[in-house]
Simulated assay, not measured.
Amino acid sequence: MKIKRKIEIAVISDVHLGTRGCHAKDLLNYLNSIEPKKLVLNGDIIDAWQFSKRYFPKSHLKVIKKIMNMSADGVEIIYITGNHDELLRKFTGTTIGSIKIVDKLVLELHGKKAWFFHGDVFDMSMQNAKWLAKFGDYGYSALTLVNRMANWYLQRCGKERYSLSKKVKNNVKTSQKHINRYEKVISNLAIENCYDYVICGHIHEPKIKYFETKNGKTMYLNSGDWTENFTALEYQFKRWKIYYYSKDKLSPFFVEEDFEDMNMNDLIAAITIVEQHKKKTK
């Protein structure tokens, strides 16, 4: 039996379950390899913008089941709502089983304050033209679908994955300016409110970076995504790091080969596990 890595906090965001760009099996491998005290789901875990009953593979269901099982096993799970799963914002402050649903989160970590939120409220394109953001999202999804097919071919040839969308972002000056402005606005606000760490997602750009002004300094952290970067944030031994699935998976936990046997009834069963577990421990 392989030993799971014990970490204090794991943060994932922008999984986009229910879309063809989501790499659910890779995420499941990652979740099977760790044993966190807290798992922070920092928005856009399920993609309600593009949700379709015609496309929700068993591997995507299995990610949900895994999260529910982790909750039943005592992992504290906090679901921070994002723009793609904004339907959950009406349930802010409630719990589903043992999973807390919030819009933001503040934690004290060894004497330092950490501020968690998805980040869409600081995205001017979201606030000023939501319809345009959704239109752009469909274009991004089409690009990731093409990218996924290209990467399937590259992997069969023994070559590394390639991110088309990341290449496009890096080559478009306006996109980089948008990202820089996003990071600066969030970090300045964190400094004004005396937060040592500010943790977000939304822009699919994994990063750890210090920001400093005359009023103080903060560490900006972005958990990236599971559509092109396959990244998470991990906190252990008073330090943060970005986990890159493609680089850091030394001995990954492979997904069980029982996707074909799973259906919606299995998902319902996974949710009831939480309640059954609570009854047994009373």
Rank of each mutant, 00 (worst) to 15 (best):
I96L: 14
D26Y: 05
R5D: 14
F122M: 08
I99C: 04
K112Q: 11
D266Q: 07
N263S: 12
A129M: 05
N229M: 05
S165K: 07
N151C: 13
D120K: 00
K173G: 00
I80D: 05
K169E: 12
E205Q: 12
S52N: 05
G111N: 06
A48V: 11
A114K: 00
L154W: 10
A269E: 09
A269P: 01
T213P: 03
G43F: 00
A72W: 00
Q176V: 13
A232M: 09
F254A: 11
G21Q: 04
I271M: 06
P252C: 00
M219N: 04
Y197P: 00
S175Q: 12
D44K: 03
L164T: 08
Q276F: 05
M262K: 07
H118R: 06
D44L: 03
I273K: 11
N147F: 12
G136I: 05
F117E: 00
W152E: 14
K62E: 00
F91A: 15
S141M: 15
K2P: 12
S59R: 08
D44P: 04
F56W: 04
I271T: 05
D14S: 00
G82Q: 09
I34V: 15
Y138T: 14
N263C: 13
K113M: 05
N151A: 14
F56N: 07
T218Y: 03
I191H: 01
L233N: 07
K38H: 13
W240P: 02
D261F: 02
H84P: 03
G93N: 10
V172C: 10
H277N: 10
F51M: 07
E86R: 10
A129R: 03
K167A: 14
R89W: 02
V274C: 06
V121D: 01
